[in-house]
Design a binder for these strands. Sequence first.
DNA 1: GTCTATATGATGATAGAC
DNA 2: GTCTATCATCATATAGAC
Lengths: 184, 184
Amino acid sequence: MTTKENIINLADTLIREKGYNAFSFNDISKSVGIKTASIHYHFPVKSQLGVAVIELHIEGLKAIIEAYKTSTPLEQLEKFFSIYYAVQKQNKVCIVGSLATDFNTLDENVQSKLKVFSEIMLNWVSTFLEQGKEENAFTFKSESRTKAIMIITNMLAIVQLSRLTNKEDFVVVKNEIINNLTQN
Amino acid sequence: MTTKENIINLADTLIREKGYNAFSFNDISKSVGIKTASIHYHFPVKSQLGVAVIELHIEGLKAIIEAYKTSTPLEQLEKFFSIYYAVQKQNKVCIVGSLATDFNTLDENVQSKLKVFSEIMLNWVSTFLEQGKEENAFTFKSESRTKAIMIITNMLAIVQLSRLTNKEDFVVVKNEIINNLTQN
DNA sequence: GTCTATATGATGATAGAC
DNA sequence: GTCTATCATCATATAGAC
């Protein structure tokens, strides 16, 4: 892994552990082992690092979508859950939730990049829900985009809320969604 | 309103607009019209102000719960929605979501106070959902605490997510929850 | 690419006068 | 209760040597 990739990965972890405005170049400096001034060589301003972090998430999600293109809707749903399961396991939150609460403090470039990511996620979930409905794998009455929002908000918030309530609540929510989608 | 109350209310707004680590004593100073040093007279350290903000939310929620004690489950649900509707209208997020993403940077006193608030909220929603189920006003198969978590996570996250997608998505989520609870 | 050195400004916080 | 003055610390960012 290059130093640049190292910096991005670390920034990603810090953003989702502590929040965008709580992490500093000094945090990264200590972990990567280079001085803060050297970080500026790779990312002249902090917001460019923020953009790079989101771009990494976009690439990763696009790769998953592509890899699961021919999988069943249920398999795609399970993959979606597995992403958040990993987030939860690491005591992080998801990138959308973390940056959404800081949204009004973010540079325009970070804001618009985050919107791109959330749209890709929403479209993906909507698509495999719709497909699952057509194949009678899933049962729900609402529009697929609406159902996607319901499920995404459940996931996005449970990784936040379970920091206060109980780690096991993640599985409770996951199972409730599956039961609800596959009932009858 | 006293200066102290003024400070608390302003801090609350700033936390939910910009995040805990993004708001400063200087922000409050400018709005309240007193110097930052004077704020320290009321709140020696920032975390004490954070605690006071959450205590205000606890008092407010307790008052609502008490006021709606004899109301129908549906009325209590509508009241619950109205709280988040106001949050959404003001382009804020809820206090739990805002502080949950910054949780690992918060003082212990703020962390534990936030847990108290989330527990009160969860208990309230669980209780009126349970009552609604017994009275056949609501239809759902899961445990009331689970259903409460599903609904709370929908609300908590939609005020965040709709900053990226569409303001109208709040109403979409609200209606979906009601349709889901009152179907059959 | 990484370093040292530094600029510049904001931050939370304290001491003491009024 | 609020002020002025000040502090130590931390932040992002830049210039220029290696």
